[in-house]
Amino acid sequence: MIYLIKTHFEIKETIVTILADSDLFIEIAKKELAAGRFIVENYIAENPFFEVTLEAYEPDPSAHPLICRMIDAANTFGIGPMSTVAGVIAEAAVLKMKEAGATVAVIDNGGDIALYNAGTKPLVIGIYAGKSNVRNLGFSIEPSSEILGICTSSGTVGHSISFGISDAAIIFSKNVALSDAAATALGNALKEQGKENIEKALDVVKVPEIDGAVLIEGNDIGIWGKVPKIVKANVNYDLITKGE
């Protein structure tokens, strides 16, 4: 049986929950999260427009690979690269944990999750859709040798920029940076209530490398692609990773 350790960690605006099967991997995650922030902060210091633009950013082959990954993912949807920052930093940290020998490694960076589950049992990730009546449900994530991105954007929850009205726009992809960008794009796409508008919004994320998507607004849910099994879950909303 694998016993998991859960830790809350904050560094400046980055507020995360880390889950792993050893304290060693928790410390690796903290170090890598700090390193990721340092890379992004340094690039912004030299390229301030990178932080504020909400549109596609000119590729920069000379930049650090993490920065290039952010730009590539965001440009897929024509949005600003900072839309990917939580996912890409979480992904880099989970990759380091995996390389160090972790069996289970999860980082929830404000609702943008990088998950590696090479254990023997599924992990259940709860769904948080604010004031929506969609509650106490989760996704059952089966064991896999690959890292999975589960990223969420919302027009009604949290402080991140969204130009839509969704309670939760959830994306699944093995490219966590792309998952993060797609969640933002999907959330932006839903401007009006109604099942037909949800279906139309989902068209935005039907691109290569996106496995599946779930879009929740009020009592309505739209699902596209390959989505993990949805199960009943006792979701403790006080434990959700979020800032003040």
Rank of each mutant, 00 (worst) to 15 (best):
R37F: 02
R37E: 08
F38P: 00
F38L: 09
F38E: 15
F38S: 11
I39A: 08
I39L: 04
I39E: 04
V40S: 01
V40P: 01
E41N: 13
N42Q: 14
N42W: 05
N42L: 01
Y43E: 05
Y43Q: 03
Y43A: 08
Y43K: 07
I44T: 05
N47S: 05
N47T: 10
N47K: 13
P48G: 12
P48E: 10
P48N: 10
F49A: 11
F49L: 14
F49Q: 11
F49K: 13
E51G: 00
E51L: 13
V52N: 12
V52Q: 10
V52D: 09
V52H: 10
V52G: 01
T53D: 07
T53I: 10
T53V: 12
T53H: 07
L54G: 06
L54N: 12
L54W: 08
L54V: 08
L54R: 15
E55S: 15
E55G: 11
E55T: 13
E55Q: 12
E55A: 13
A56G: 13
Y57G: 02
Y57N: 02
Y57K: 06
Y57L: 06
E58I: 11
E58L: 12
E58K: 13
D60K: 05
P61Q: 10
S62E: 14
S62H: 11
S62P: 00
A63E: 01
H64P: 01
H64D: 15
H64S: 02
P65L: 06
I67N: 01
I67D: 01
I67Y: 01
I67C: 04
C68K: 15
C68Q: 15
C68R: 15
C68L: 08
R69S: 07
M70A: 05
I71L: 01
D72W: 00
A73Y: 02
A73S: 14
A73F: 03
A74F: 04
A74E: 02
N75I: 05
N75G: 12
N75R: 11
F77G: 03
F77Q: 04
G78K: 09
I79C: 08
I79N: 05
I79Y: 04
I79R: 05
G80Y: 09
G80K: 10
M82S: 07
M82R: 02
M82T: 06
M82P: 02
S83K: 07
T84L: 08
T84K: 04
T84I: 09
V85M: 06
V85I: 14
A86L: 03
A86R: 00
A86K: 04
A86G: 02
A86V: 01
G87C: 07
V88G: 10
V88D: 09
I89R: 03
I89Y: 01
I89G: 03
A90G: 11
A90I: 02
E91W: 13
E91T: 09
E91I: 06
E91R: 09
A92I: 01
A92H: 08
A92G: 07
A93Y: 08
V94R: 02
L95V: 12
L95W: 10
K96F: 06
K96G: 05
K96E: 15
M97I: 07
M97Y: 02
M97D: 12
K98V: 15
K98L: 13
K98S: 06
E99V: 00
E99Q: 15
E99W: 09
E99S: 13
A100Y: 11
A100T: 10
G101M: 06
G101K: 13
A102E: 10
A102Y: 01
T103G: 14
T103Q: 14
A105G: 14
A105D: 06
A105K: 02
V106A: 14
V106Y: 04
